[in-house]
Design a protein around this nucleic acid. Sequence first.
DNA 1: AATATATATCGGCTTTTCTCGATATCCCAA
DNA 2: TTGGGATATCGAGAAAAGCCGATATATATT
Lengths: 98, 98
Amino acid sequence: MDQVEIFKALSNKTRLQILEWLKQPAQNFPEQPDGFKDGVCVGQIQQKAGLTQSTISEYLSTLQRVGLVIVTRKGQWTYYKRNEKTFAELSNLIKATL
Amino acid sequence: MDQVEIFKALSNKTRLQILEWLKQPAQNFPEQPDGFKDGVCVGQIQQKAGLTQSTISEYLSTLQRVGLVIVTRKGQWTYYKRNEKTFAELSNLIKATL
DNA sequence: AATATATATCGGCTTTTCTCGATATCCCAA
DNA sequence: TTGGGATATCGAGAAAAGCCGATATATATT
């Protein structure tokens, strides 16, 4: 868990936004028909964020690299969901170390 | 409390370091003779960090701008100390919002 | 008033981040 | 096996951040 890298990942309005959206997938992504077991696919997130596909893809990969989200490939789709374990660790770290 | 700006301020090894040092001023800044009521002065921090005076001055001003430290001018010295209130808020925010 | 010390600000150079369009890859369906 | 849709990667230009040296400002001392 690299503190600096995590804070960098959180230093962007859109990435923070995505993480919040992923807290309530059903509410925030009504277009996605299937359940949200594995999270939300890139296209849905991209559409809601209003940035280009490549940008969102890179943002999600950034979040995944620092462990804030978990990725699941399924056919031609890639689903992203929050990794709550990392959020809990971060909260503890801020309380303890910071 | 601007989340993005706070995370930006925390996205730097040296600034994180400074915040940790300021948790235990007496241990980390034995050179400073007087009490630590108002914190530690810029020169002490600069010396320990090993970056230039201008860089450290700017870093401290960044931390102050987002409310992570409190500044007190006293004569020709400027003392910086942690603003624990903001840290507590941040920890809560991460637990609640993030 | 002149000087010395502590800190802040400015200008600049280098590296990183933001964001895009274009292209490549991967997977499914006909 | 060819085409189409979803995602990833690449290359690039603009903006921001990381640092520095030089200079300005403020305060204290003589």
